[in-house]
């Protein structure tokens, strides 16, 4: 459905996207994971026909994004990062306008349908200016779904939503992803793990990892890190106690009076650590797993790349 080969985009002298290649099949949800400024939005804008690439070949649903831009745009639903809405219009009128531009037959029925899907039926006649950020996000999503697009491109679709809505929107995306192709960008690792079948990690305009979410997770989870807190300040004796436990690879004292330690994944050292700490007379207050942050994953991945080259 989406085929990208050697995509490059320059903004003046700055190269935003560098020789990007990937595919996305029908019925697949692909996540674009990367920090701000990694080139996610640029790539998405090129896929939607908003701007042409500097170099490379991009086809969506079999149409070239430069040569057959209108055909591509007919088949793509797009939710940009900052949801663009005419705030002076009512929700229903706005969606009807977008539907008219896409020449959808029986547009009013379809608008009712998508409003139902995103849970905004009761606000159909309200002005967009009076909607909360989360609601606006859902209006934007409704706009992207209007014409039953073959390819759905969502730039940070859950940003600004409250937790309940995040769950709803994710379910909606998952349901859509069963039949259509969804490409979504996010900078939240757990979100990508949650919804996507496959993840592309992108940094500085290059793909640095591409894999299914499960594989990526196990590839990265070489060691697990845990924070431990006791009543009062932790001291060197406590470190010694923890280090003695079998499986613990590293333990260090943190400035805030807590201890962080690591153990190889698969050999959970936490129960034994807890037992030893309590037996040594400390009051154990907290034992908290520290997830790998996106930054750490990048460090991990980029340093791995460096090692390979050597």
């Amino acid at each position: 459905m989406i085929k990208v080969r050697g995509l490059t985009k320059d903004y003046g002298a700055r190269r935003a996207v560098h020789n990007l290649s990937f595919d996305a099949q029908q019925g697949e949800i692909v996540g674009f994971l990367g920090p701000n400024g990694a080139g996610k939005t640029t790539t998405m804008r090129i896929l939607t026909g908003y701007m042409p690439p500097t170099d490379g070949e991009v086809t969506v649903a079999g149409y070239d994004v430069v040569e057959e831009s209108l055909e591509v745009r007919k088949r793509v639903g797009y939710l940009p990062e900052t949801v663009p809405l005419y705030t002076e219009m009512a929700v229903f009128d706005y969606l009807k306008y977008m539907g008219d531009l896409r020449q959808i037959p029986n547009v009013e029925d379809r608008v009712d349908e998508v409003l139902e899907m995103v849970g905004l039926s009761d606000r159909a006649n309200g002005y967009i200016a009076n909607l909360s950020k989360g609601m606006r996000q859902r209006v934007g999503l409704a706009q992207a779904l209007l014409h039953k697009p073959e390819v759905l491109i969502l730039d940070e679709p859950t940003i600004g939503l409250d937790p309940g809505q995040v769950v709803e929107v994710r379910e909606l995306i998952r349901a859509i992803g069963k039949e259509r192709t969804v490409l979504l960008s996010t900078h939240l690792l757990h979100e990508a793990q949650n919804i996507c079948d496959r993840v592309l990690i992108i940094n500085k305009g290059k793909i640095i990892a591409e894999d299914t979410t499960e594989n990526l997770q196990s590839r990265l989870a070489g060691a697990e890190r845990v924070a431990l807190r006791v009543r009062g300040e932790a001291d060197k004796d406590l470190i010694k106690v923890i280090q003695k436990v079998k499986g613990v690879e590293e333990a260090e004292l943190k400035a805030d009076g807590s201890v962080e330690f690591e153990f190889a994944s698969g050999k959970d050292a936490r129960p034994e650590v807890a037992k030893q700490v309590i037996q040594s007379g400390y009051d154990l207050l907290e034992l908290r797993p520290l997830g790998m942050s996106l930054e750490e994953i990048f460090l991990e991945l980029t340093s791995n790349e460096g090692k390979k080259k050597q």
């Binding site: 804008r45 908003y50 007919k74 797009y78 663009p84």
Partner: peptide, 14 residues
């Protein structure tokens, strides 16, 4: 300025 141009430029409108 509002960013709605992005919407129109990604709709099938010349």
């Amino acid at each position: 300025r509002m960013g709605t141009l992005e919407l129109l430029l990604t709709a099938p409108v010349r």
